[in-house]
Design a protein around this nucleic acid. Structure first.
Lengths: 268, 268
DNA sequence: GTAGATCTAG
DNA sequence: CTAGATCTAC
């Protein structure tokens, strides 16, 4: 089974890129973020015409996530609320950042973690609070899914967990996506029993999934590895590959993110 | 000698279309309108690298005209003022709508006539006033250029002179580009001794140079012939062809106008 | 640097 | 419907 995550930075603008990539990379599920479109305007037929099943949760202009699946998914939920209830989640689900579905007993959680703007800002505080609620959310899912849950949590985390995930970690403490508070907040989530599957196969740095559009970052490989797949042990041990596909980032009018694919040794 | 006129609706957005068209259609001079760019930002090198000479008069966002010539042009002037003086022209030259140059003794006047917005509007009044000053301008050029002037006046006139120049002339009196006042104002200009060279070769209707972007006008050929070449008798008798090239209007992200080319039987 | 929203212009 | 300007967000 192959599952990919890709922040497409507007599904409408990136439609051809995404369709072409899916044809060349026949993953079972593609998790996309930053669709930037309300559900009514999501370009459904280009995907359904190719036989894909779509599960979307979008809003106007910002955020928005979707699951694009070769076969139907089960138990679809959008946002934290269906699992945690309104009182715990509050206003966090106003921004469409979470969609979840189950394929062959494997729960796929597709996230678009808040960017946070600047360290210390209001949006930064929101990001940290969102990660706290994410922990509650994943804890609830783990409980729900048996003693050995098979959960894959992927998406754009807007956090580089380690210095080797940044082209230049100098001054990273003051930089959004690399501050101590963000890293700690994500670590607290992962303590539930999730491991970064990319690091099962690749030890060295210099591997990134996002490059700022500005100042030729991609050409200089001034990137960040902020798009991740985190797996529970039952899945982690079955992972046989995790790769970042840089090719789409080289096309005309690319997303600023590259897709990241994980392959699991499970019969489908 | 071949001379073409083309409202490109942004030279920056249409750059590839224009370059490709010039390669496939080696005219001597291409007169473009609605460049929509200040002179400092005009994409010069794509043209000069191919050996073209550029003469431009642009402004921010709106209007803007340019002459793109295979060989150098002489006696370049932009606006009405260099010929008529400031007192007669007033504020009309604030909008960059006129550029003129001479090739092999033939004066080429490239115009972007005001659109006029709606019949009776302030912009409509401006359009009519502009056409009055255009008459003075061309009259002055005719006097300047000898008793048998060789003048070609081309561009986007935003006027369909006859009903056969409109896909549906019904109610045209109330429509901008076809009202009686506009037609009369242009006729008054042409009385100086200019003739529409397209009609030397083509009698029938159904030939258009502009199709609204909206409501699939091009697919339904709901067009208007508003891009013209007007010639003094000395040139008119030497004209051997005048054609509208619909091909660029069929491309992706086209201009709403098609180029119109006139061929003159003159040695170069 | 890129994308969307909103505005103006055509 | 398309393009540019200005704004916000990333």
């Amino acid at each position: 089974m192959k599952i990919a995550t890709w922040n497409v930075n507007s599904i409408r603008t990136r439609l051809e890129h995404v369709l072409n990539w899916l044809q060349a990379n026949p993953v079972d599920v593609l998790c996309v973020q930053e669709t930037k479109v309300i559900d009514a305007d999501f370009p459904r037929s280009p995907f359904t015409d190719l036989g894909y099943h779509l599960y979307i949760s979008g809003q106007k202009s910002y955020n928005g996530v979707a699951l694009i699946s070769r076969t139907p998914l089960e138990d679809i939920t959008a946002g934290f609320t269906p699992i945690l209830g309104e009182s715990l989640v509050g206003e966090l689900d106003a921004q469409k950042r979470v969609i979840t579905g189950v394929l062959d007993g494997i729960r796929i959680v597709n996230l678009y973690v808040p960017n946070g703007s600047e360290v210390g800002s209001e949006k930064y505080v929101y990001k940290l609070r969102w990660l706290q609620v994410l922990r509650e959310y994943l804890a609830a899912l783990c409980l729900k899914d048996s003693s050995q849950p098979k959960i894959l949590v992927c998406g754009d985390f807007n956090i580089a967990l380690e210095d080797r995930d940044i082209h230049n970690p100098k001054g990273r403490e003051k930089h959004i996506m690399a501050s101590d508070h963000e890293r700690a907040a994500l670590q607290t989530v992962l303590e539930l029993g999730f491991a970064d599957v990319f690091r099962k196969f690749t030890e060295d740095g210099g591997h990134f999934s996002w490059w700022d559009y500005r100042s030729g970052s991609f050409q200089r490989n001034s990137g960040w590895r902020i798009d991740h797949h985190y797996l529970t042990p039952a899945l982690y041990e079955r992972a046989i590959a995790c790769t970042i596909d840089v090719a789409p980032r080289q096309l005309e009018k690319p997303s600023d993110h590259a897709p990241v694919t994980v392959e699991l040794e499970v019969a489908l």
